[in-house]
Protein backbone atom coordinates (compact mmCIF):
# COMPACT_ATOMS: atom_id res chain seq x y z
CA UNK A 1 0.00 0.00 0.00
CA UNK A 2 1.41 3.35 -1.04
CA UNK A 3 1.42 6.21 1.47
CA UNK A 4 0.24 9.54 0.03
CA UNK A 5 0.24 12.83 1.94
CA UNK A 6 -2.29 15.62 1.42
CA UNK A 7 -1.90 18.16 -0.23
CA UNK A 8 -0.99 16.09 -3.27
CA UNK A 9 1.21 17.28 -6.13
CA UNK A 10 0.33 16.88 -9.82
CA UNK A 11 3.30 14.60 -10.19
CA UNK A 12 2.07 12.17 -7.57
CA UNK A 13 -1.49 12.30 -8.90
CA UNK A 14 -0.27 11.39 -12.39
CA UNK A 15 1.74 8.48 -10.98
CA UNK A 16 -1.39 6.90 -9.47
CA UNK A 17 -3.04 4.23 -11.60
CA UNK A 18 -6.30 2.30 -11.44
CA UNK A 19 -5.93 -0.56 -8.98
CA UNK A 20 -3.31 1.10 -6.73
CA UNK A 21 -4.00 0.69 -3.00
CA UNK A 22 -3.22 3.95 -1.20
CA UNK A 23 -3.04 5.07 2.45
CA UNK A 24 -3.99 8.77 2.69
CA UNK A 25 -2.79 11.07 5.45
CA UNK A 26 -3.38 14.76 6.11
CA UNK A 27 -6.26 17.21 6.39
CA UNK A 28 -9.40 16.84 4.29
CA UNK A 29 -13.06 17.73 4.41
CA UNK A 30 -16.23 15.72 4.11
CA UNK A 31 -18.76 16.98 1.62
CA UNK A 32 -21.72 15.41 -0.09
CA UNK A 33 -24.98 16.40 -1.74
CA UNK A 34 -25.91 19.65 0.01
CA UNK A 35 -22.27 20.78 0.09
CA UNK A 36 -21.71 20.29 -3.64
CA UNK A 37 -24.94 22.03 -4.57
CA UNK A 38 -24.08 24.91 -2.23
CA UNK A 39 -20.62 25.32 -3.82
CA UNK A 40 -21.98 25.23 -7.35
CA UNK A 41 -24.91 27.60 -6.74
CA UNK A 42 -23.01 30.10 -4.58
CA UNK A 43 -19.46 30.18 -5.95
CA UNK A 44 -19.30 28.57 -9.37
CA UNK A 45 -22.56 29.23 -11.24
CA UNK A 46 -23.44 32.04 -8.81
CA UNK A 47 -27.18 31.54 -9.19
CA UNK A 48 -27.59 32.37 -5.50
CA UNK A 49 -25.84 35.26 -3.69
CA UNK A 50 -23.60 34.35 -0.74
CA UNK A 51 -25.52 34.54 2.53
CA UNK A 52 -24.64 34.59 6.22
CA UNK A 53 -21.28 32.93 6.81
CA UNK A 54 -20.92 31.62 3.23
CA UNK A 55 -17.95 33.83 2.32
CA UNK A 56 -16.09 33.17 5.57
CA UNK A 57 -16.52 29.45 5.12
CA UNK A 58 -15.36 29.46 1.51
CA UNK A 59 -12.30 31.45 2.55
CA UNK A 60 -11.55 28.87 5.24
CA UNK A 61 -12.07 25.96 2.85
CA UNK A 62 -10.06 27.26 -0.12
CA UNK A 63 -6.60 26.39 1.26
CA UNK A 64 -7.81 22.92 2.32
CA UNK A 65 -9.36 22.23 -1.07
CA UNK A 66 -6.31 23.50 -3.00
CA UNK A 67 -4.38 20.31 -3.73
CA UNK A 68 -6.69 18.55 -1.32
CA UNK A 69 -9.41 15.98 -1.08
CA UNK A 70 -13.17 15.86 -0.61
CA UNK A 71 -14.50 12.79 1.16
CA UNK A 72 -18.06 11.78 0.23
CA UNK A 73 -19.05 10.84 3.74
CA UNK A 74 -21.89 11.51 6.15
CA UNK A 75 -20.37 10.40 9.44
CA UNK A 76 -21.79 9.36 12.78
CA UNK A 77 -20.25 11.88 15.17
CA UNK A 78 -20.23 11.79 18.98
CA UNK A 79 -19.77 14.81 21.26
CA UNK A 80 -22.33 16.98 19.49
CA UNK A 81 -23.49 18.50 22.78
CA UNK A 82 -20.01 19.23 24.17
CA UNK A 83 -18.48 20.05 20.76
CA UNK A 84 -15.75 17.53 21.53
CA UNK A 85 -16.38 15.88 18.21
CA UNK A 86 -15.25 12.37 17.43
CA UNK A 87 -15.94 10.29 14.31
CA UNK A 88 -17.61 7.07 15.40
CA UNK A 89 -18.48 5.67 11.99
CA UNK A 90 -17.30 7.19 8.73
CA UNK A 91 -17.51 5.08 5.59
CA UNK A 92 -18.07 6.49 2.11
CA UNK A 93 -21.43 7.37 0.58
CA UNK A 94 -22.42 6.68 -3.05
CA UNK A 95 -20.52 9.17 -5.21
CA UNK A 96 -22.52 9.12 -8.43
CA UNK A 97 -25.01 11.63 -6.97
CA UNK A 98 -22.27 14.27 -7.24
CA UNK A 99 -21.65 13.52 -10.93
CA UNK A 100 -23.36 16.75 -12.13
CA UNK A 101 -21.12 18.85 -9.84
CA UNK A 102 -17.86 17.05 -9.17
CA UNK A 103 -15.72 18.00 -12.16
CA UNK A 104 -16.64 21.69 -11.89
CA UNK A 105 -15.84 21.71 -8.17
CA UNK A 106 -12.52 19.97 -8.75
CA UNK A 107 -11.51 22.42 -11.47
CA UNK A 108 -12.68 25.55 -9.62
CA UNK A 109 -10.94 24.74 -6.33
CA UNK A 110 -8.04 22.62 -7.66
CA UNK A 111 -9.25 19.54 -5.78
CA UNK A 112 -6.89 16.64 -6.49
CA UNK A 113 -9.05 13.77 -5.39
CA UNK A 114 -12.38 12.64 -4.12
CA UNK A 115 -13.03 9.64 -1.93
CA UNK A 116 -16.31 7.79 -2.19
CA UNK A 117 -17.84 4.54 -3.28
CA UNK A 118 -19.43 3.14 -6.41
CA UNK A 119 -17.37 5.26 -8.77
CA UNK A 120 -18.36 8.21 -10.96
CA UNK A 121 -19.20 8.86 -14.60
CA UNK A 122 -17.63 10.31 -17.75
CA UNK A 123 -17.85 13.98 -16.69
CA UNK A 124 -15.82 13.36 -13.56
CA UNK A 125 -13.39 11.12 -15.43
CA UNK A 126 -12.82 13.97 -17.89
CA UNK A 127 -12.34 16.35 -14.95
CA UNK A 128 -9.74 13.99 -13.46
CA UNK A 129 -7.74 14.24 -16.68
CA UNK A 130 -7.92 18.04 -16.75
CA UNK A 131 -7.16 18.91 -13.12
CA UNK A 132 -5.34 16.33 -12.83
CA UNK A 133 -7.13 14.34 -10.18
CA UNK A 134 -8.13 10.84 -9.15
CA UNK A 135 -11.07 9.01 -7.65
CA UNK A 136 -10.25 7.02 -4.54
CA UNK A 137 -12.64 4.19 -3.63
CA UNK A 138 -13.08 3.45 0.06
CA UNK A 139 -14.82 0.28 1.23
CA UNK A 140 -18.54 0.97 1.52
CA UNK A 141 -20.03 0.09 4.87
CA UNK A 142 -16.66 -0.32 6.60
CA UNK A 143 -17.52 2.64 8.77
CA UNK A 144 -16.15 1.72 12.18
CA UNK A 145 -12.90 0.52 10.60
CA UNK A 146 -12.41 3.69 8.54
CA UNK A 147 -13.31 5.95 11.49
CA UNK A 148 -10.16 4.65 13.20
CA UNK A 149 -8.13 6.44 10.52
CA UNK A 150 -9.69 9.76 11.51
CA UNK A 151 -7.30 10.98 14.17
CA UNK A 152 -8.88 14.38 14.86
CA UNK A 153 -11.90 16.47 14.02
CA UNK A 154 -10.50 19.94 13.47
CA UNK A 155 -13.82 21.70 13.01
CA UNK A 156 -17.18 21.74 11.34
CA UNK A 157 -18.97 24.17 9.02
CA UNK A 158 -22.64 24.33 8.11
CA UNK A 159 -23.82 22.05 10.87
CA UNK A 160 -27.29 23.37 10.01
CA UNK A 161 -27.08 21.16 6.88
CA UNK A 162 -27.47 18.29 9.39
CA UNK A 163 -24.73 16.01 10.76
CA UNK A 164 -24.41 13.83 7.63
CA UNK A 165 -24.36 16.79 5.22
CA UNK A 166 -22.19 19.19 7.27
CA UNK A 167 -18.64 20.05 6.19
CA UNK A 168 -16.35 18.27 8.66
CA UNK A 169 -12.68 19.21 8.63
CA UNK A 170 -10.73 16.14 9.65
CA UNK A 171 -7.19 14.92 10.02
CA UNK A 172 -6.65 11.36 8.83
CA UNK A 173 -3.79 8.91 9.10
CA UNK A 174 -3.44 6.06 6.63
CA UNK A 175 -7.04 6.10 5.44
CA UNK A 176 -7.21 3.02 3.19
CA UNK A 177 -8.48 3.50 -0.39
CA UNK A 178 -8.04 2.08 -3.87
CA UNK A 179 -7.61 4.22 -7.00
CA UNK A 180 -10.48 3.27 -9.32
CA UNK A 181 -10.39 6.30 -11.68
CA UNK A 182 -7.09 7.90 -12.61
CA UNK A 183 -5.82 11.04 -14.32
CA UNK A 184 -5.13 9.13 -17.55
CA UNK A 185 -8.73 8.27 -18.39
CA UNK A 186 -8.68 4.86 -16.71
CA UNK A 187 -11.82 3.78 -14.87
CA UNK A 188 -12.31 0.41 -13.23
CA UNK A 189 -16.03 1.20 -13.06
CA UNK A 190 -16.27 1.60 -16.82
CA UNK A 191 -14.37 -1.66 -17.35
CA UNK A 192 -16.63 -3.62 -14.97
CA UNK A 193 -19.82 -2.02 -16.34
CA UNK A 194 -18.81 -3.00 -19.89
CA UNK A 195 -17.72 -6.56 -19.11
CA UNK A 196 -20.78 -7.26 -16.92
CA UNK A 197 -22.97 -5.71 -19.64
CA UNK A 198 -21.68 -8.26 -22.14
CA UNK A 199 -22.44 -11.13 -19.76
CA UNK A 200 -25.91 -9.68 -19.15
CA UNK A 201 -26.63 -9.52 -22.88
CA UNK A 202 -25.69 -13.21 -23.18
CA UNK A 203 -27.86 -14.16 -20.22
CA UNK A 204 -30.84 -12.21 -21.55
CA UNK A 205 -30.52 -13.90 -24.93
CA UNK A 206 -30.96 -17.34 -23.32
Amino acid sequence: MRAVKIPISDEIIRSLKVGDPVALSGVMITGRDTFHKWLIDTFIKKTRPPQGDDLDISAALKPILDGGIIYHCGPVVSGLETKEYKFVAAGPTTSIREEPYQADVMKHFNVKGVIGKGGMGPKTLQGCQEVPGVYFHAIGGAATYIAQSVTRVLGVHKLDFGVPEAIWVIEVKDLPVVVTMDAHGGSLHQVVADSSGKVLADLLAR
Binding site: V88, A89, G141, A143, P164
Partner: peptide, 23 residues
Protein backbone atom coordinates in the same frame (compact mmCIF):
# COMPACT_ATOMS: atom_id res chain seq x y z
CA UNK B 1 -9.14 -6.80 -0.06
CA UNK B 2 -12.64 -5.33 0.12
CA UNK B 3 -14.03 -8.45 1.79
CA UNK B 4 -11.13 -8.56 4.25
CA UNK B 5 -11.80 -4.95 5.24
CA UNK B 6 -15.51 -5.69 5.53
CA UNK B 7 -14.85 -8.57 7.94
CA UNK B 8 -12.42 -6.55 10.04
CA UNK B 9 -15.07 -3.85 10.25
CA UNK B 10 -17.76 -6.31 11.32
CA UNK B 11 -15.59 -7.50 14.20
CA UNK B 12 -14.62 -3.99 15.30
CA UNK B 13 -18.18 -2.69 15.23
CA UNK B 14 -19.38 -5.60 17.33
CA UNK B 15 -16.55 -5.14 19.82
CA UNK B 16 -17.03 -1.36 20.15
CA UNK B 17 -20.83 -1.18 19.89
CA UNK B 18 -20.44 1.29 17.03
CA UNK B 19 -22.35 1.37 13.75
CA UNK B 20 -21.23 -1.18 11.14
CA UNK B 21 -22.09 1.44 8.52
CA UNK B 22 -22.39 5.19 9.12
CA UNK B 23 -25.59 5.13 7.11
Amino acid sequence: GALETILKNIELARQNSTPICQD
